[in-house]
Amino acid sequence: MSFRNTMRAMPTLLKVGFAEAVAYRAEMLIWVLSTTMPLVNMVLWMAVARNAPVGRFGQADFVGYFLATFAVRQLTSSWAAWLINWEVRQGTLSMRLLRPISPLWAYAAENIAGFPMRLIVAIPVTVLAVVLVGSKAVPQHAWQWAFFVLAVLGGWAISFLANVTIGALSFFLGSSQKVMEVWLVLYFVCSGYMYPVELLPAGLRTLINWLPFRYQIGLPVELMTGAHGWREALVLLGAQWAWVAVLGALTVAVWKQGVRRFAAFGG
């Protein structure tokens, strides 16, 4: 579909997607409750920091960090890989391919349409963080807010594109759920989800800076808690959006190849 027509259909796609997100609110709530990992790690780090701070992190800083992690995960996550796997297996992907609009846009719209519902969870958690830790739990200046919003968008884009790429692998592998699990493990370990990346040894930190994972969670959280000056933040944001571009190109290539294969072998 031409880009103009896609954009014209977008408001309706978003509206219907939002209605779906509302219909699945109970599922979402359960999912939110099941993302307890930051809290599990929070109590561990609080115990570690009970007597003396770890690096620049005292107990309160850990509370702020992990609550921010919890909130950012709600905003930046995507389920597209599971959905695509399911649709390829059920053959319902055919219905999407028959429509004169790329399924990639449809998946993106469905994902973005869930944002308001996710904010309903993220905002109270952020408020709680401010109550517990004080105003340093959120950005202090307008530019920090702007950078934070950009970083959340970039983090979401990386999650979404990686999900679609891995989801599209199911065209070739039959099921790519195990690949997604491997990605998830790397994401948990490398993204700053379980510990602040800056507590890692320098060598590992350099490696992680070159991988996409920390830009999904770590960077938005660091920008939320004001860990970086604007110059450093700008460099990291640049790296994040470079990953968005790379993954974007990869996604389109893998998807096209996958659909071609789907048409050759049938669903």
Binding site: L33, S34, V40, V43, M46, R50
Partner: peptide, 20 residues
């Protein structure tokens, strides 16, 4: 899922919860 995520809290020695 909910059950598994609560079980996640069993990862650490229970004494780390003392301070919370």
């Amino acid at each position: 899922y909910l059950f598994t995520s609560i079980f996640d809290f069993a990862r650490w020695p229970s004494s780390v919860f003392q301070g919370v």
